[in-house]
């Protein structure tokens, strides 16, 4: 029976030492969508990651905890059965860990949104921006085009 209590104590010690890692779930919210506004057929339009029309996400959780950030990015915007190409550049993402995020001069700039990004959460989490380029064809049918941008965040345990 003594061994039983020893094991129970060991278990709670393990829990206690790992508790900070999962004391609070990470959270992620959409602050802004990537908005291209009106576009003329045949004229590509680029929204920079530092633009007010760039997509902005906020990630919350335990300060100092490391997280991975993965984008699932579309290759087309759609309007019914019509598609329009969208391009995300390999330096089209930025991340800021400051409590007052600075979009024009972020902590981590020119990041590749096609790769997994790994950063520590700041005191106010992380703010993530991403821009892109839409390429309407010369005979692109008029309409409102849209596509999903999915951001997945996960603690690494570090």
């Amino acid at each position: 029976m003594n061994r039983f209590w020893i094991l129970i104590i060991i278990y709670f010690l393990i829990i206690a030492t790992t508790l900070p890692l999962f004391a609070a779930d990470e959270s992620v919210t959409v602050n802004n969508n990537l908005t291209f506004g009106t576009m003329f057929p045949g004229i590509p339009k680029t929204i920079d990651k530092s633009s007010a029309n760039a997509a902005e996400f906020s990630i919350g959780g335990d300060a100092g905890a490391e997280v991975t950030i993965d984008f699932s990015l579309p290759t087309y915007l759609s309007s019914g059965s019509n598609n329009m190409q969208i391009i995300f550049f390999t330096d089209g993402c930025a991340v800021d860990s400051n409590s007052t995020p600075n979009q024009s001069s972020p902590t981590y700039d020119d990041l590749n949104p096609w790769q997994t990004l790994t950063y520590d959460l700041g005191s106010s989490g992380l703010t993530v921006w991403i821009g892109g380029k839409a390429v309407p064809g010369f005979r692109q049918p008029a309409g409102t085009y849209t596509a999903d941008i999915i951001l997945t965040v996960q603690y690494t345990g570090l």
Binding site: Y11, I14, I15, T18, L21, F22, D25, E26, S27, V28, T29, V30, N32, N33, L34, T35, F36, G37, T38, M39, F40, P41, K45, A55, F57, P74, L77, S79, M84, I86, G132, A134, P136, F138, R139, Q140, P141, A142, G143, T144, Y145, T146, A147, D148, I149, I150, L151, T152, V153, Q154, Y155, G157
Partner: peptide
């Protein structure tokens, strides 16, 4: 308990879906 509650929480994922939107005007 450790596997179910401890490890499970450490590797929990959160995902959110934003969007990219644009309005294409009439072609010439």
């Amino acid at each position: 308990c450790f596997v179910l509650f401890g490890v499970g929480n450490i590797y929990a994922q959160q995902a959110v879906t934003g969007s990219a939107d644009g309005v294409v005007l009439a072609a010439i």
